[in-house]
Design a protein around this nucleic acid. Structure first.
Length: 481
RNA sequence: GGCGGCAUAGCCAAGUGGCUAAGGCAGCGGUCUGCAAAACCGUUUUACACCGGUUCGAAUCCGGUUGCCGCCUCCA
């Protein structure tokens, strides 16, 4: 099977055919940098991170562009509150964004353009739209005329008449038609501004993505992504502008991720359930967050909750325990995988099954099902009565299969010991030497079959968060999770 | 009002016409263990919202009903 993607434009799954064979250009709407990113941003970032990782692993040469909106009304508003200028505020939150993405293991995009660095490109596009009759100037503001663009509404599947009828917002009286939107906005006194043929001002929100995507990927490119909410009006408007200006189709595939709710409710500041990425990471490991966010199909709504995160933790702990068992037998994993590890997989049954589900519109939930299957297989193998020497080479292969596929999901890249170290909340109240001493004492008692004393020692350690595990090679210990 | 989505076991979640409907979590029973832990095996009364239709055959397609949600305004 070849790679299939759900295209919001056609409302169907389609076989993915890139414009240039083997190459993919993808543009994803990034964040408006006026505040810290929340876990909804994390979902979007991780979904497209996995899309890019997967396409690369499948052998595509991917050019990934993700922008920063570093000038808009919200930024101006916030800067007025904090007393900073907009550029300083934006810079601060761009840095915070990078920190968050780094901790989540989200790879940088190849090109990360900022709106304020592409004002000239936007002005060019607006000028061209005016020349072609798709836009009109009223005072110092430029509007896009949706009635002039025939296929307006096609992307989001709406009729302009329906929308106009149901409009809930007071219409700007300068507009010729209620659905028209701003391409260039005149600056009020004290607002940040750039020079333009229509007076000092700033670009409208939608024009930046049209201008920057076309600049870096060409007027017609492969994939355009973003959150479900951006479909209308943002993407509809982006498409209209770009196609009107360039006269060719814009993005061929539109990919939108579903929304994240928190304990069943939409995240909003008024409800007070707005969870930033850094909030979440104080309670959960980044890998837990990633596993959770990938456990449901990317287009479906997903509910973030304490109980769901704890379930995720249990599953992830099992996976890492298994990796730790493997490591004890065959040593640490050395990643020597090439970049296109899901391209030529031959008769590797596991990878083929993984590709089969992931090729179907990036079915990460099904992919994770396979990961858990593999974990069970590996545990079975270790528990099997076969000699250790017999299973070594098999374990090497099984672990590589597991970690290769996980790599496409951005999971399990760290060492198990690091994971456990980070996830353990209950710090031991006793020093490691003390624990070792008590284990030796308990061993003596066990030899003498003094079970009462042995159990008492185990109980005492358990109260301090130390779990003992008796095995054939002696007694090991770990902290309770 | 307009447009769209979703409904699968105790919970989470794949599956879109046909073998025993993935996987995870939780519970229970068992193997192992002195007892545990971990792991493995088994199991959790009729799990596909309801009604009707198409079909030899539907969780899957079509129509309707109910419920939940999103977008239509800044929003990942």
């Amino acid at each position: 099977m070849s790679f299939q993607l759900y295209n919001s434009a056609s409302r169907k799954k389609e076989v993915f055919r890139p414009i240039k064979n083997g190459e993919v250009g993808i543009y994803v709407c990034g964040v408006t940098v006026y505040d810290l990113c929340h876990i909804g941003h994390a979902r979007s970032a991780i979904v497209f991170d996995v899309l890019v990782r997967y396409l690369r692993a499948r052998g595509f040469k991917v050019t990934y562009v993700r922008n920063f909106t570093d000038i808009d009304d919200k930024i101006i508003e916030r800067a007025n509150k904090t007393g900073e200028d907009t550029a300083t505020l934006a810079k601060r939150y761009i840095n915070a964004f990078y920190e968050d993405m780094l901790s989540l293991g989200v790879l940088d995009a190849d090109i990360e353009p900022k709106a304020t660095e592409h004002i000239d490109d936007m002005i060019d596009m607006v000028r061209s739209l005016i020349e072609k009759g798709f836009a009109y100037v009223v005072d110092d503001t430029v509007y896009f005329s949706v009635e002039k663009f025939d296929s307006y509404g096609q992307l989001s599947g709406r009729q302009i008449e329906d929308m106009a009828a149901g409009a809930r917002v007071a219409v700007d009286e300068k507009k010729k038609y209620p659905m028209d939107f701003v391409l260039w906005k005149g600056a009020k006194p004290g607002e940040p501004k750039w020079k333009s043929p229509w007076g000092d001002g700033r670009p409208g929100w939608h024009i930046e993505c049209s201008a920057m995507s076309c600049k870096y990927l060409g007027p017609n490119f492969d994939i355009h992504g973003g959150g479900r909410d951006l479909l209308f009006p943002h993407h509809e408007n982006e498409r209209a502008q770009a196609m009107a200006a360039n006269g060719v189709n814009f993005a061929n595939y539109w990919v939108h991720n579903g929304f994240l709710t928190v304990e069943g409710e939409k995240m909003s500041k008024s409800l007070g359930n707005f969870i930033t990425i850094r909030d979440a990471l104080t309670s959960y490991h980044p890998q837990e967050l990633r596993l959770f966010l990938l456990s449901k199909h990317y287009r479906s709504p997903l509910d973030f909750s304490r109980s769901a995160m704890l379930e995720t933790r249990s599953g992830l702990v099992r996976i890492y325990r298994t990796l730790q068992r493997v490591e004890e037998i065959i040593g640490p994993y050395k990643n020597d995988t090439n970049n296109t590890f899901l391209y030529h997989v031959g008769d590797n049954d596991f990878k083929n099954r993984f590709i089969h589900v992931m090729d179907d519109d990036l079915n990460t939930a099904a992919g994770l099902g396979l990961v858990f299957d593999k974990v069970r297989d590996i545990n079975r193998l270790i528990d099997s009565p076969a000699q250790k020497t017999d299973i070594t080479s098999q374990l090497v292969k099984e672990r590589k299969d597991l970690l290769d596929c996980s790599k496409a999901l951005g999971l399990l890249e760290g060492e198990p010991s690091h994971f456990f170290k980070k996830i353990i909340k209950t710090s031991p109240e006793v020093a490691a030497e003390e624990i070792e001493k008590m284990i030796k004492e308990r061993q003596k008692a066990r030899k003498a079959k003094d079970w009462a004393s042995a159990d008492a020692i185990r109980e005492e350690l358990s109260r301090k968060g130390v779990i003992l595990e008796d095995g054939p090679k002696g007694t090991g210990w770990r902290l309770r999770i």
